[in-house]
Design a protein around this nucleic acid. Structure first.
Length: 797
DNA sequence: GCACGATTTATACCA
DNA sequence: ACTGGTATAAATCGTGCG
């Protein structure tokens, strides 16, 4: 015992109220791997009061003092200098006793005469603490502490009390963190399992040491799963993980376990605090005291390349486990596999493969998640469930604190649409040697260059010398001093530059390199979200005119860049928002320099296509890269809501047109697929169409095929929730397409309507490309003769 | 009352 | 639940016809 300097990796912050005193608890791992808690008894909740300009501050101060109650007194009221949207002003800082009383005081103070607004009263106590102390989760710190007797209800090795201040440490390597992956299987003979009725039959777990543990219900009985749930809790307490990961665990595994435990009368004791049960918390995540519960699905959701995000597909995509190497059991057959003793082992293998996949995905995703947590300040268990807007907002709130800026309240606003980016009409046909030039981080750089933001906006007359006047919309922004957005964005971009520099000092296979690489990616994500955030009505720093100015400038800049390109004799084929597709030749280098000179923004060659094809449609093209790869952009082949077979055909068509220059070969392969379809030789899983359910089924105004299939799924005892993808196929018969859309699991191959797939999937997807080359629907549906090559079309369009 | 084009609703993509 | 711009399919509406 006694004073010491403790070095620790902070992973979470919470608080408890002891008597009338709030205690901040900092959860950390020290340099030798002890799990520790640092207790700070010295922090109190506070907020700010802004008064109308003509009001005597001392009168308001006195009135606020008079509001203090005995139960939870106001302990300090003082006038402090702050800034509101860049304008310096004196505000009243009100400090109280316990966080729970803040809301009441906020409401009471709002009614005091002369009070214009109460600010920062909606910031959670533990977040407030981290911001004020400069603490970030998933980072190393040093602090002067004194060891105290460990509170018996907290399951860590050592407990300290804070004595001095925190000092951030420049260590990029995290300590060894214990991760536990888990997955549950539930008995579901009637489709959707109900916690009141259906037991948990298997719980599979894997820890970061590679140990796999499977708990299964014993005997033939499906009753009384108390034992495995208790063993699950025991295992957690014994292994004592810092991070618990699951796949969709916030929406399924945890809620089910919590409900099932209630039914069985078991206390879900899995945290590091006695009686610290898991509960739903901010952004809909499940919070476990003293541990970080992370649902990997939250991060997977953001990977656009994966369309159907089932665990097995994601694990394969990330290179964790191949689908052919693992056991797969469809959800609607779990109870059958369990009941059939000869198949039960397969189910257990399935559960093991699932948990191994989950752990593998965690290894791929957690390093990024930890950097995102460290930058935004949101604890690891929250950062995934928070939307992009909230992540950036937390970063902004921290920045505001550093600049003494008051954090605006979240206010309800009406949605006001505004004009966005420009998309050029493509020159349709096949083009050879095309360079794609992109402005680097166009919108963030526009915000910096033109100092766009709510605090730099001027409504009075302002000359071109002092203000940036925005074309088209006429808004004006002060050139100096830098506004909030500009300052924040410059910091983000400079940090990214610095991190990328620092990366060079480490070998590519080192932990540090990987950590820094994830950090620079997280910095990029935050910078790129800034424009969208500014135009989001839910944002604290919402500023429509700012967002409008950014897109207006973007349109202006692209327009000027096109002029420069034409001056240099470069042919502009297409362009979208911040990109231009031009003929690739020597003037391109000159173009890049001229854009920099005249427009003050950087443009770079992003890609070179040996050959590229456009139809009349915007946002869609296929290109042959210099490496011989075919890029497909926008077309059906890259959409998740087309049948696999149609996407495959379109991809092959694209390849034979661009790489092989053969129209007839493309027609042949479409013919073949259509024949196979008619003969019923295409496997059913290539015919499934996946579409997302975006709102409650009863809210739909029209009954589209996926909604009709979803309703049928419900009738079968299945479950459909908002955000789920429904896989359906179209069966033979009369009537609308919707009336023939069925969940794929309920359909036999012989009931498939081949004509639907030919007329509504294969033909349109193929024709989208082939129509330009003079191919007709009829040709696709009958065996073709005659050979046409791309050469015959190369001088068209 | 019906056929068919126009409009509406819905999704997913691009940047 | 970060933005607007765009393509497309299927359902549904609305209108002209007789």
């Amino acid at each position: 015992m006694g004073l010491a300097v403790l070095m620790f990796y902070l992973y979470d912050v919470s608080y408890e109220v002891v008597g009338k005193e709030p205690h901040i608890l900092l959860w950390g791992i020290d340099e030798v791997g002890n799990r520790v808690v640092i207790r700070d008894r010295g922090f109190r909740p506070y907020f700010y009061v802004v008064t109308s300009s003509d009001v005597e501050l001392t009168r308001v101060v006195n009135e606020i003092r008079r509001l203090s109650s005995v139960k939870s007194p106001i302990i300090n009221v003082e006038v402090v200098p702050k800034k509101l949207f860049g304008r310096p002003l004196n505000v009243i800082k009100v400090t109280t006793t316990v966080p729970e009383s803040v809301r009441e005081y906020r409401e009471a103070i709002r009614k005091v005469g002369g009070v214009a607004d109460v600010l920062e009263a909606d910031i959670r106590f533990s977040m407030r603490y981290m911001i004020d102390k400069g603490l970030f989760p998933c980072s190393w710190f040093e602090a002067e502490v004194s060891e105290i007797r460990k509170h018996p209800s907290i399951a860590v090795t050592k407990e300290y009390e804070l004595v001095g201040e925190f000092k951030p440490l420049n260590i990029h390597k995290p300590p060894h963190i214990r991760v536990l992956a888990f997955d549950i299987e539930v008995y579901n003979p009637r489709g959707v399992p109900k916690p009141e009725r259906d037991p948990v039959i298997i719980i599979s777990m894997m820890n970061s040491e590679g140990d796999v543990k499977v708990l299964e219900l014993s005997g033939d009985t499906v009753k009384n799963d108390s034992r495995i749930i208790s063993e699950f809790m025991d295992y957690i307490q014994t292994y004592d993980p810092d991070v618990i990961v699951g796949y969709n665990s916030n929406r399924f595994d945890w809620p089910y376990l919590i409900e099932r435990s209630k039914v069985l009368g078991i206390r879900m004791d899995v945290g590091r605090v006695r009686d610290g049960v898991p509960r739903t918390s901010v952004y809909g995540h499940i919070s476990i005291p003293g541990r970080l519960n992370v649902d990997l699905f939250d991060f997977v959701e953001e990977i656009g390349e994966i369309k159907v995000k089932s665990l097995d597909v994601v694990a394969e995509y990330l290179g964790v486990m191949r689908r052919v190497d693992r056991v797969l059991v469809p959800w609607y057959e779990i109870s059958k596999y369990w009941d059939d003793l000869s198949k039960r082992e397969v189910l257990i293998r399935y559960a093991v493969d699932d948990v191994k996949s989950t752990m593998g995905i965690a290894e791929k995703i957690l390093p990024f998640a930890m950097q995102l947590s460290s930058l935004t300040g949101l604890p690891l268990d929250q950062v995934g469930s928070a939307s992009v807007g909230f992540r950036l907002e937390w970063y902004l709130m921290r920045s505001a604190y550093r600049y003494s800026e008051l954090i605006p309240n979240r206010v309800e606003r009406f949605y006001e649409p505004y004009k966005g980016a420009i998309v050029l009409e493509p020159v349709k046909g096949v083009h050879e040697n095309i360079a794609v030039l992109d402005f680097t981080s166009m919108y963030p750089n526009i915000m910096i260059k033109y100092n766009v933001g709510p605090d730099t906006f001027v409504e009075y007359d302002c000359s071109d010398e002092l203000c940036n006047v925005i074309p088209e919309v006429g808004y004006k922004f002060r050139k100096d001093p830098p506004g909030f957005y500009k300052a924040v964005l410059e910091t983000l971009l400079n940090m990214r530059k610095a991190v990328r520099e620092l990366m060079k000092e480490f070998p590519q296979d080192s932990v540090e390199y990987r950590v820094l690489d994830e950090r620079q990616k997280a910095l990029k994500v935050l910078a790129n979200a800034s424009y969208g955030y500014m135009g989001w009505v839910g944002a604290r720093w919402y500023f429509r005119q700012g967002a409008e100015a950014v897109t207006a400038l973007g349109r202006d800049i692209i327009g000027k860049a096109i002029e420069i390109a034409r001056e240099l004799g470069l042919r502009v084929i297409y362009g979208d928002t911040d990109s231009l597709f031009v003929s690739y030749g020597p003037p391109v280098e000159r173009f890049i320099d001229l854009v920099m000179d005249r427009l003050g923004l950087e443009i770079k060659v992003d890609k070179i296509y040996r050959r590229i094809f456009f139809t009349e449609a915007k946002k869609r093209y296929i290109g042959l890269t210099v490496d011989g790869l075919v890029d497909i952009v926008g077309f059906e082949a890259v959409r998740g809501d087309w049948a696999e077979i149609a996407k495959e055909v379109q991809e092959l068509v694209a390849y034979s047109i661009l790489a092989e220059g053969s129209v007839s070969k493309a027609v042949d392969l479409v013919n073949n697929v259509i024949r196979e379809l008619r003969e019923g030789r295409i496997p059913l899983d290539k015919l499934i169409i996946w579409k997302t359910i975006t709102k409650p089924l009863s809210d739909y105004e029209v009954s589209s095929p996926h909604v009709s299939a979803a309703r049928r799924l419900l009738d079968m005892g299945g479950r459909v929730e908002v955000g789920d993808k429904v896989g359906y196929v179209i069966v033979k018969g009369g009537g609308s397409i919707s009336s023939r859309a069925y969940p794929y699991i309920s359909v036999r191959a012989e009931d498939i309507d081949a004509d639907y797939y030919i007329d509504h999937q294969i033909v349109p997807a193929s024709l989208r490309i082939l129509e330009y080359f003079g191919v007709s629907e009829k040709q696709l549906k009958t065996i073709s003769r005659g050979v046409k090559t791309l050469f015959d079309f190369s001088r068209r369009g």
